[in-house]
Design a binder for these strands. Structure first.
Length: 360
DNA sequence: GGAATTTGACCTTA
DNA sequence: TAAGGTCAAATTCC
């Protein structure tokens, strides 16, 4: 398998291995200087994350665009193919046109199609395993309200239209369309249009919880919604998480405290493989500490059963873009960053400490 | 009773 | 003018 790996993939693997080695060394070091039990727990979790990341990369199917859950406790696989229906900049952020479109759209509430054209728009593909008990895409962290359904010409399944629940109260213009794939009914193509301007994004979910997947499934049945996130929000959340991390670091640098630790990592029972491919990606040089940490945090988070385990995977072209692009998504996949174990992890990772050549 | 979904009609675009 | 997208009243659910 490794024979077909691209340079980026090999580099990624190398970096992960190296990081794991560093963590091991840290454990040895801390073991000699500190008797705090949590230290070892933390390091164990670091190692666990690395090991599982490596495991993912080593999966035989990781060279395809489809992520199949290959562990018994991964009930559903999410294929997240980011189809750039509008240009996405190299770092995954919407282009200036996208931003302009959103901005103008916010100024002018009388949305028309021309403006819609300029909105950021991308498509994710979500594979959902029927074995998981869910028949539709899992929640993507935002609160959506279905406002329409339409039979599409030449499509076997109708298309469902969703808009942000807070459209009226906060004038959030984000919408999404969910279309079940003709070829593979287990795949839902989710097209996101516009960005969330509401303050009830994913992070807000820790307050008013949206309907559970079970509830949503009960309601939506066949035309379920969801998956994935708004990219800008992901970026913002990446920043938020980093900010929280740094706050935590101020505690950390004073020594390991007695904050309650999350239970050891376990794969959630209803989890999703997850891949994002296409141009909605980072270049290796754009992979900053946010995405790195986000990967770890989400990867290890068992907090939200419907959206917790997201598998990064190389795309079919063998590069690392899909993997990298999925990182911000991984960040926000976990609905509440407060639930992310990494926020409880007391290790320091300042931007200055990040190897600027990470993945290079 | 409030909130979410359904669905037919209407609007916009190519 | 057909197809996609949205609106809004009716319906359903909690």
């Amino acid at each position: 398998m490794e024979g077909g790996w691209s340079w980026e993939q090999k580099t990624l693997m190398s970096e992960l291995i190296e990081g794991m080695e560093f963590a091991k060394q840290l454990r040895v070091h801390l073991g000699s200087t500190s008797s705090v039990e949590t230290t070892d727990v933390l390091v164990q979790r670091i190692l666990s994350s690395y090991e599982k990341a490596l495991l993912i990369l080593k999966w035989p199917g990781s060279g395809s665009t489809t992520v199949q859950a290959q562990q018994a406790n991964i009930g559903a696989a999410v294929v997240n193919c980011c189809v750039p229906e509008s240009p996405i900049s190299i770092n995954g952020s919407p282009t200036s046109d996208d931003i302009d479109g959103v901005f103008k759209d916010n100024l002018d509430h009388q949305e028309n199609s021309k403006k819609r054209k300029t909105q950021s728009r991308w498509t994710d593909k979500v594979r959902v395993s029927f074995e998981s008990g869910l028949e539709g895409p899992h929640e993507d962290g935002f609160s959506w309200r279905k406002y329409g359904q339409k039979d599409i010409l030449a499509a076997k399944y109708p298309r469902s239209y969703y808009r942000c629940t807070y459209r009226n109260t906060q004038n959030c213009r984000a919408t999404k369309q969910v279309q079940r794939s003709d070829e593979d009914p287990t795949i839902f193509e989710v097209t996101y249009i516009g960005t969330h301007t509401c303050s009830h994004g994913q992070a807000a979910q820790s307050v008013p919880q949206p309907p559970s997947p079970e509830k949503q499934e009960k309601r939506l049945n066949h035309h379920n919604s969801n998956n994935n996130n708004n990219y800008q929000q992901q970026q913002q959340q990446s920043q938020d998480i980093l900010s929280n991390l740094r706050k935590g670091l101020s505690v950390n640098t004073n020594g390991l405290d007695n904050r309650e630790m999350e239970p050891p990592f376990t794969f959630p029972s209803t989890s999703f493989g997850y891949t994002r491919t296409g141009d909605h990606c980072f270049s290796p040089s754009m992979l900053d500490e946010n995405t790195f940490l986000g990967f770890s945090s989400t990867y290890t988070s068992p907090s939200t059963p419907e959206s917790n385990y997201f598998l990064c995977q190389m795309n079919s072209f063998g590069d690392a873009q899909g993997f990298e692009a999925s990182l911000p998504e991984l960040l926000s996949a976990n609905n509440s960053s407060a639930n992310s174990p990494i926020l409880n992890m007391d290790f320091s990772l300042d931007p200055a400490e990040i190897d600027p050549n990470f993945l290079l």
